[in-house]
Design a protein around this nucleic acid. Structure first.
Length: 918
RNA sequence: GCGAAAGUGGCGGAAUGGUAGACGCGCUGGCCUUAGGAGCCAGUGGGGCAACCCGUGUGGGUUCGACUCCCACCUUUCGCACCA
C-alpha cells in the first residue's frame, strides 16, 4: 500500500457549520496536522523554548541521543531514536528540570568520500549540503532541541580540539607511534581497528581484511583497561548486556607468564639462520601465557602462531614449514569461520626445555594460536585443554594427566574428551607440587618460576591499544610534521587547527591529501627548514568520543571545554542503538578519562544512564530475475499472501501484478528495498502521528515491526482526540460557559458528583498516575499511549452534559492532553489553547494526580475459589476481611463451588481479591 | 561452544506474584453518508445449547494463587567466539 494521497484541504468552520453553535467557536472541526505543527514549531522557535542555560540551583537533565551521520536523509531508526529522547526531554522539562537536548553531526567519514568518488563532488560539499536538509527534517519532527549548540565534527572549530588533545596525549604518552601488523581493508584502502573487523571482514565494506605492516598512531586504551572494566560495575544505569559485552571485550584474565628455555637445537637454528634480531625479541626462550600454570607438568608440546618470530626463523630452512605457515596466514583471513576450522599444525623439529624437569619439549606451529593474544605461543597440555587434546590426538602427541578430579569423576584422561578434564582438581605427577589443589598450585608454581627468574603472575587483556591513523582524506588531520633534520615534530598549538583543504575530490585510489602539495609542503616548526605534513587523518570514532562534552561549551575558542561541562555532565540519559555497545561507548569512556587525566574535566563516566532502542523492521520481498540476481520489491507495493498458519508466504506486486516471494522480516535498508521514508510519513500524516506510531508499536527496547495500518490507527486516534476536544469546546460555547480551563472550580464539591462523574475523574487521575510512571520510571511509552487511548474511550462513554459534567470532562481532557504532550507535542500544544489556556503546554508543570479522585468509595473484589475466578463483589473501599469474606461467600456462583466443602483457608487482599481454599 | 534476551489471540503487543489477552491493527455484523482508505454502534482466544471446560513454547517445582519466581529442555534472535 502506498501512502494515502494528500488528504482534502481541511474544511473550515464556516463550510462545515451546522448552526450558531459552531459559529461561535473558532476551533476548526477538522484536525489539520500540517497547520497545527507549523503553529507549534513557530511558537517554540519564537519563544526559544528549548534554549538551555546553566541555572544554579535547578536540577539539570542532560538528555542526549547519538548524533547522526549526515548521509542525506533521515531514516526510521533516527525517528525512533530521537523521539525517545524527545519524549524524555519534554517530560523532564515539565517535571521542572533544566533540560539540555542538543544535536550535532558526525560529519567525517567514508560515505562522503564514496559519494565524492561517485559524483565527482568534494566530500565537504556533499556533507554541507546534507546537513541543512537533515536539519530541516529533524525540525519537522518537532524535537525539543537547543539548536544554538549545534556542532559538526568536520568544522575546524570542532576538530582543532581533536588535534589539540591528541598532542596533549602524545606529550603524556597516551598517544604513541609504532609499526604494527594492522588490519587493512583492501576496498576502502585503510587500516581498521580490531573492533572494526567482524568475522575477518571490514565492518563497513565486508571485504576480507589483509594483514599489513604500517607505522601508525595508537591511543593507550590498555592503560585504562583495569579502570574501564572495574567501573562497569558501577554503571547501574546501563543495560546489563552492554556491560557484559564491554567486559568481554576488555577480557581480563589472570595467569602466569613463563619462558621455556631454548634447547640446543633451537639455539643452533637461530644462530645458523642469523636471525639474532628476531631471537633477541624472544630472549632465551619461548614465552607463553597460561591461566593454568597448575598443569605445567602436563606440557607435551609448545605451539607457536604462524606469525611468531621463531616460527618464521624455523621456516627459513624448512620449505614444508614455510609453505604451511603461508597457508595458515592465508587461511586465517580466508576462512570466515575460524572457530570451527580444523586444528592443524606442523613440528618445527626443534625444542625448548621444560622449566622444572629440563625435559625437551617439541615446538610446533599451530593454526589455532593467535599472534594477537598473549605471547603468540601457548604451552600444550593435551590432558587438560580441549584444543590441545584435539591437536595431540591428531598428531600423536602424548597426553599426560597431571590433575585429577577432586570429586573422583576421573583418574586418568582418556578418549573421548570430557568437560571435567579442564576443571580444577588435585595435582598428580607434578614433582613437588603433587597433592596441591589447582588454586594453590598456581600460586606455588608462579612463586617458583619467579624465584628462577623465568616467570611471574600477570594479568592478560584481550583489549588492545586503539590505532587511530587512517589513510583517508575526509577526516581530522593528525597535527604532525615530518622533518629530515628534526624527525617528527608536533604542530605548535598556535598553528592549530591544521585545516583540512575542503575542495579535494578523492578518486578511489589512496588519499588525495598526500598528493596535494599546498597541504603537504610546509616548514618545520623546529628548524624552519622544508618539511612534509602528515597526511593521515584520525579515525572518526575520535570525533564522536567527546562531542557530548563540547555541547556544554560549543562557542568556546580557547579550550575544548570549560567549567560549564561540570554543570551539564554527566549525560543523564543517553539514547542510541545497541550496535554502538562496544566501539563508540568504550572509546567515549576512555576518552573522557584521558581528558580527566589532562585536567580538562572532573568526571570519569560520561553517560550515567544508557538506553538502547530496538531496530525498526519491515518485511522483505524479492523475486529472482532471469539472470539469477535478486530484485527486492518494496513491501508498500506488495499485497501479501498467507498460508493456513497465517504465515506470510509471498504476495503480488501492486505495480505489475506479478508474484513476489516473501524473504523475511529485516531491518529497514536501502539494499533490501524495505525502507519507509520518514519525510513522506510526516508529509502525509504529520510528525505527531509518526512519533505516536513509533512509540506505540513496541516497547522502545524491542524491535519494532512496521505497519502502515498501525500508522493509520494512530492518526485516527489523534483525530478522535481532536474531535473530542472540539465537541467539548463547542458544547461549552453554546452553553455560554466556554472552556472552563482547569476543570472543576474551587466551589464545586467533588464528593457531590454523580457516580459517573466520579468514575471519569477516577479514570483520568489514574491515567495520569500511570503515564507518569510509564514515561518517568518504566520507559514503556507504548503503555503510556494505550492508557491515554483508554481514557479517551472512557471520556467518550461519559454522557452527562450539565455545567458540572462539562467541568469534569474538561479536567479529563486536560489530563489526556497533558499526558500525551511529550509524545505528540504539536496537537497537544493546540488543544491546550483550545481548552482555554493562555500558557503554552510546554511551559506547564506536569500535574500530580488528585488523591481524592484516585480513591474510590466502592471497589470490586475478585472472588476466587482454589485460585480460580468464580465471582466479583462490590464493597465499600477499605472493607474489613470479615466483611469481604461474608460478601464473597454470599455470591451465588461462589456458593455453588463452596457448598458441601470445608473452608480450609481464606486469603484476603484488601480492595482486590478474596481466595477461598476448600 | 560461551553469554544475553525473548517465546502470550489472525497480527503488533498488555498484564509491576492476584480478573490472561489492556491498547491498537485486522476481521464480522449493523448504522450513517455528497461511496471516503471517513465516522458511529456491537462483536471478535478455542470448545460447548448451557452450566462450564481448556488456554501464555515443553516438562517439573515453589505458592492459597504463576505469563510472571526456581530447575531442566526445545525454539528463535542478538552478541562473542581456537583468548591459552
Amino acid at each position: 500500500m502506498r501512502w494515502p494521497a494528500v488528504r482534502p484541504a481541511p474544511l473550515t468552520a464556516v463550510t462545515r457549520r451546522r448552526g450558531p453553535l459552531v459559529y461561535s467557536c473558532r476551533m476548526q472541526e477538522r484536525y489539520d496536522a500540517a497547520a497545527v505543527e507549523r503553529a507549534a514549531q513557530d511558537h517554540w522557535e519564537q519563544q526559544g523554548s528549548f534554549t538551555a542555560h546553566e541555572r544554579a540551583g535547578a536540577p539539570k537533565y542532560y538528555c542526549l541521543s547519538m548524533f547522526p551521520y549526515p548521509s542525506g536523509r533521515l531514516h526510521m531508526g533516527h525517528v525512533r531514536n530521537y523521539t525517545i529522547g524527545d519524549v524524555l526531554a519534554r517530560f523532564m522539562r515539565m517535571q521542572g528540570y533544566n533540560v539540555l537536548q542538543p544535536m550535532g553531526w558526525d560529519a567525517f567519514g567514508l560515505p562522503a568520500e564514496n559519494a565524492a568518488i561517485a559524483n565527482g563532488v568534494p566530500p565537504a560539499v556533499w556533507t554541507r549540503e546534507n546537513i541543512p536538509y537533515m536539519r530541516r527534517q529533524l525540525r519537522s519532527l518537532g524535537l525539543a532541541i537547543d539548536w544554538t549548540r549545534e556542532l559538526a565534527t568536520c568544522d575546524p572549530s570542532y576538530y582543532r580540539w581533536n588535534q589539540w588533545m591528541f598532542l596533549r596525549m602524545r606529550e603524556r604518552g597516551i598517544a604513541y607511534k609504532r609499526t604494527g601488523v594492522v588490519n587493512w581493508d583492501p576496498v576502502d584502502r585503510t587500516v581498521l581497528a580490531n573492533e572494526q573487523v567482524i568475522d575477518g571482514r571490514g565492518w563497513r565494506t565486508g571485504a576480507l581484511v589483509e594483514k599489513r605492516d604500517i607505522p601508525m598512531y595508537y591511543l593507550r586504551i590498555t592503560a585504562y583497561a583495569e579502570e574501564l572494566l572495574a567501573a562497569l560495575q558501577e554503571l547501574s544505569g546501563w543495560p546489563e548486556r552492554v556491560r557484559v559485552m564491554q567486559a568481554n571485550w576488555i577480557g581480563r584474565s589472570e595467569g602466569v607468564e613463563l619462558t621455556f628455555p631454548y634447547a640446543q637445537d633451537t639455539r643452533a637454528l637461530l644462530d645458523a639462520a642469523g636471525t639474532a634480531a628476531d631471537a633477541g625479541a624472544q630472549g632465551e626462550g619461548v614465552k607463553v601465557f597460561t591461566t593454568r600454570a597448575d598443569t605445567l607438568f602436563g606440557v607435551t608440546f609448545v605451539a607457536l602462531s604462524a606469525e611468531h618470530p621463531l616460527a618464521q626463523a624455523a621456516a627459513a630452512g624448512n620449505l614444508a614449514l614455510a609453505a604451511f605457515i603461508d597457508e595458515c596466514r592465508r587461511g586465517s583471513t580466508m576462512e570466515a569461520d575460524v572457530a570451527t576450522a580444523e586444528k592443524r599444525g606442523m613440528a618445527t623439529g626443534v625444542h625448548v626445555l621444560h622449566p622444572f624437569t629440563g625435559e625437551p619439549v617439541p615446538i610446533w606451529v599451530a593454526n589455532y594460536v593467535l599472534m594477537a593474544y598473549g605471547e603468540g605461543a601457548v604451552m600444550g597440555v593435551p590432558a587438560h585443554d580441549e584444543r590441545d587434546f584435539e591437536f595431540a590426538r591428531k598428531y600423536g602427541l602424548p597426553v599426560r594427566t597431571v590433575v585429577t578430579s577432586a570429586s573422583g569423576a576421573y583418574e586418568r584422561v582418556c578418549e573421548p574428551w570430557q568437560g571435567e578434564y579442564a576443571e580444577h582438581g588435585i595435582l598428580v605427577d607434578s614433582g613437588k607440587f603433587t597433592g596441591l589443589a589447582s588454586g594453590a598450585a598456581i600460586e606455588a608454581i608462579a612463586a617458583a618460576l619467579t624465584r628462577l627468574g623465568i616467570g611471574s603472575k600477570r594479568v592478560q587483556w584481550r583489549l588492545r591499544d586503539w590505532g587511530i591513523s587512517r589513510q583517508r582524506y575526509w577526516g581530522c588531520p593528525i597535527p604532525l610534521i615530518h622533518c629530515e633534520r628534526c624527525g617528527e615534530v608536533a604542530v605548535p598549538d598556535e598553528q592549530l587547527p591544521v585545516v583540512l583543504p575542503e575542495h579535494l575530490v578523492p578518486d578511489g585510489s589512496g588519499n588525495p591529501l598526500a598528493r596535494h602539495a599546498p597541504f603537504v609542503e610546509c616548514r618545520c616548526p623546529s628548524c624552519g627548514g622544508a618539511a612534509r605534513r602528515e597526511t593521515d587523518t584520525m579515525d572518526t570514532f575520535v570525533d564522536s568520543s567527546w562531542y557530548f562534552l563540547r555541547y556544554a561549551s560549543p562557542d568556546l575558542h580557547s579550550a575544548p571545554v570549560d567549567a560549564r561541562v561540570n554543570y551539564w555532565l554527566p549525560v543523564d540519559q543517553y539514547i542510541g542503538g545497541i550496535e554502538h555497545a562496544i566501539l563508540h561507548l568504550l572509546y567515549s569512556r576512555f576518552w573522557t578519562r584521558a581528558m580527566r587525566d589532562l585536567g580538562l574535566v572532573q568526571l570519569s563516566e560520561p553517560f550515567a544512564n544508557l538506553f538502547t532502542q530496538g531496530m525498526v523492521l519491515n518485511h522483505i520481498y524479492c523475486r529472482k530475475l532471469p539472470d539469477g540476481r535478486r530484485q527486492y520489491v518494496n513491501p508498500a507495493d506488495v499485497e501479501p499472501q498467507y498460508d493456513a498458519q497465517h504465515a506470510r508466504i509471498g504476495g503480488v506486486s501492486l505495480i505489475d501484478g506479478q508474484p513476489v516471494e516473501y524473504h523475511s522480516l529485516g531491518t529497514m535498508s536501502k539494499s533490501k528495498n524495505n525502507g519507509v521514508d520518514p519525510q513522506a510519513l510526516v508529509e502525509q500524516y504529520g510528525a505527531d502521528t509518526a512519533r505516536l506510531f513509533v512509540m506505540f508499536a513496541a516497547p522502545p527496547e524491542q524491535s519494532l515491526e512496521w505497519s502502515d495500518d498501525g500508522v493509520n490507527g494512530q492518526f485516527k486516534f489523534l483525530r478522535r482526540l481532536w474531535r473530542a476536544v472540539y465537541e467539548h469546546v463547542s458544547a461549552g460555547a453554546s452553553a455560554g460557559d466556554g472552556a472552563v480551563a482547569g476543570g472543576l472550580t474551587p466551589a464545586s464539591d467533588p464528593t457531590a458528583l454523580s457516580a459517573a462523574a466520579r468514575e471519569l475523574r477516577h479514570a483520568a487521575h489514574q491515567t495520569l498516575a500511570k503515564v507518569t510512571g510509564d514515561i518517568g520510571r518504566r520507559r514503556t511509552f507504548n503503555t503510556a499511549i494505550a492508557a491515554v487511548q483508554e481514557l479517551l474511550n472512557t471520556i467518550g462513554r461519559y454522557q452527562e452534559n450539565d455545567a458540572t459534567a462539562r467541568a469534569v470532562r474538561q479536567e479529563a481532557l486536560e489530563i489526556a492532553v497533558l499526558a500525551l504532550s511529550p509524545i505528540a507535542p504539536h496537537i497537544c500544544h493546540t488543544l491546550w489553547h483550545e481548552l482555554g489556556h493562555a500558557t503554552a503546554i510546554i511551559d506547564e508543570r506536569w500535574p500530580q494526580p488528585d488523591p481524592q479522585a484516585l480513591s474510590q468509595s466502592e471497589v470490586e473484589l475478585v472472588v476466587q475459589v482454589n485460585g480460580k475466578l468464580r465471582g466479583r463483589v462490590r464493597l465499600p473501599a477499605g472493607a474489613e476481611r470479615q466483611l469481604a469474606l461474608d460478601a464473597a461467600l454470599a455470591d451465588p456462583t461462589v456458593q455453588r463451588f463452596v457448598a458441601g466443602k470445608t473452608l480450609r483457608k481464606a486469603i484476603h487482599v484488601p480492595d482486590k481479591l478474596v481466595n477461598l481454599v476448600v
